[in-house]
Amino acid sequence: MSIRVTFLGTGGAVPTTERGPSALLVNREGERLLFDCGEGTQRQMMRFGTGFTVSHLFVTHLHGDHVLGIPGLIQTWDFNDREEALAIHAPPGSKRHLRSLVEAGGYRPGFPVNIHEVKPGTVALSGDDYEVRTFETEHRNVRSMGYALLEDDRRGRFDRERAEELGVPVGPAFGRLHEGEAVELDDGTVVRPEQVVGDARPGRKLVYTGDTRPVDATVEAADEPDLLVHDATFASDRADRARGTGHSTGREAAEIAARAGAKHLALTHISSRYAGDASPIEREAQAAFDGEAFVPDDGQKFEVPYPDGGGDTEGGSE
């Protein structure tokens, strides 16, 4: 089962020819979750081939570079005869403003758009074997929060060799044991799952901050996230500017990633002043973080790896 992240918009408040405003598409085995929806997000989805069916949109805060893509996307879905409901999850106090965006210009979509205000520190979405939790962030003049996609633990590895040693016949009995069911053999012997199945293995963890200063809540959002997508608007030579505008530097993002035990760090919301070269942000993050730190380009994809190296994905960007 794969989790593929596509960086649809990696730029700051002012778009450039290379970087659009904030948007992140997560495809988890065909289920698409969109985090933020800056101007032009629908075109980025078309351009980078992510697929267009999104059931949940998670908004970090109401600044325009994170929400102004919503009206166009809503209307395009409507023109394409969408019937499926869309759920928008956003910080407390957002519903009225988001409803105005959804119905911009008096437009009323022909499919349900349900807006949910979610408090930080709670569950925004419970899936079959994962959940999306919220955590409070610190941005300027607005209520803001980040999101952590946390998978449930997976079953342990099945020891086929040990099962055969115990006399379990090859076939359906293997599957029943792996799913937690004891199996009785022809001679009356009972083989229990714990005899042939290893310890549960952790699922994957993805954390997305949106715009924020470095805060403890990001560290606490997930223990050792496999991918942390963190605000890194400026390099450290503009640390005062970062503080004044409620953003982080590349070094500050790296320090948060190190404290959280992250495996990979994606640096996003890059200021337009780095339109030609974002390497100063990337270099200072790499110097402060032992894992992989990178500034993704718009359209870049990243396969989130399993923490134990198992499963279908090995991790890495393309």
Results as ranks from 00 to 15, higher is better:
81 D>E: 12
314 E>N: 09
40 G>H: 11
252 E>I: 00
11 G>E: 12
175 G>T: 12
179 E>S: 14
79 F>T: 05
295 V>H: 05
154 R>N: 09
232 A>L: 09
101 L>C: 13
109 P>D: 04
162 R>I: 06
26 V>K: 08
259 R>P: 00
67 V>R: 04
52 F>C: 09
208 Y>D: 01
180 G>K: 10
130 Y>I: 06
236 S>R: 13
204 R>M: 04
246 G>I: 06
289 F>T: 06
219 V>I: 15
266 A>N: 07
264 H>M: 01
304 V>C: 02
249 T>L: 04
112 P>I: 09
275 A>T: 12
146 G>Y: 14
245 T>A: 12
37 C>I: 14
210 G>A: 04
119 K>I: 02
9 G>C: 06
164 E>H: 09
282 E>T: 11
146 G>W: 14
196 V>C: 03
126 S>I: 07
191 V>R: 11
207 V>F: 01
165 E>G: 03
305 P>W: 04
269 H>V: 14
265 L>N: 02
78 D>Q: 03
150 L>S: 06
17 T>Y: 07
87 A>I: 09
17 T>M: 07
282 E>H: 11
275 A>F: 11
186 D>F: 05
46 M>A: 13
27 N>S: 04
271 S>Y: 01
267 L>A: 02
42 Q>V: 10
105 G>S: 08
162 R>A: 10
42 Q>E: 06
87 A>N: 14
162 R>E: 10
180 G>P: 12
6 T>P: 06
145 M>G: 12
144 S>P: 01
281 I>P: 05
313 T>Y: 00
256 I>V: 15
63 H>R: 08
130 Y>S: 03
104 A>L: 15
183 V>L: 02
285 A>R: 04
220 E>V: 00
202 P>N: 00
166 L>T: 09
157 R>I: 09
56 H>D: 15
80 N>T: 07
116 H>P: 02
175 G>C: 03
89 H>A: 02
291 G>F: 04
65 D>P: 06
106 G>F: 11
267 L>R: 04
143 R>S: 14
195 Q>E: 15
102 V>H: 02
29 E>V: 06
56 H>M: 02
72 G>T: 08
77 W>Y: 05
104 A>G: 03
53 T>I: 13
265 L>I: 12
58 F>P: 10
76 T>R: 08
286 Q>L: 01
73 L>S: 03
29 E>Q: 11
126 S>V: 12
57 L>W: 03
82 R>I: 02
178 H>L: 13
258 A>V: 00
260 A>M: 05
281 I>D: 04
244 G>P: 00
32 R>P: 01
134 T>G: 05
147 Y>R: 05
218 T>D: 00
176 R>C: 02
295 V>Q: 00
186 D>R: 13
169 P>T: 10
260 A>Y: 01
5 V>I: 14
148 A>D: 05
109 P>S: 08
4 R>C: 07
195 Q>S: 12
11 G>S: 12
18 E>R: 15
90 A>Y: 00
284 E>M: 07
109 P>M: 04
264 H>F: 10
145 M>K: 11
136 E>Y: 00
13 A>C: 09
263 K>E: 01
277 D>T: 03
311 G>Y: 06
106 G>D: 13
219 V>A: 05
257 A>S: 09
294 F>V: 01
224 E>N: 08
63 H>V: 07
212 T>Q: 03
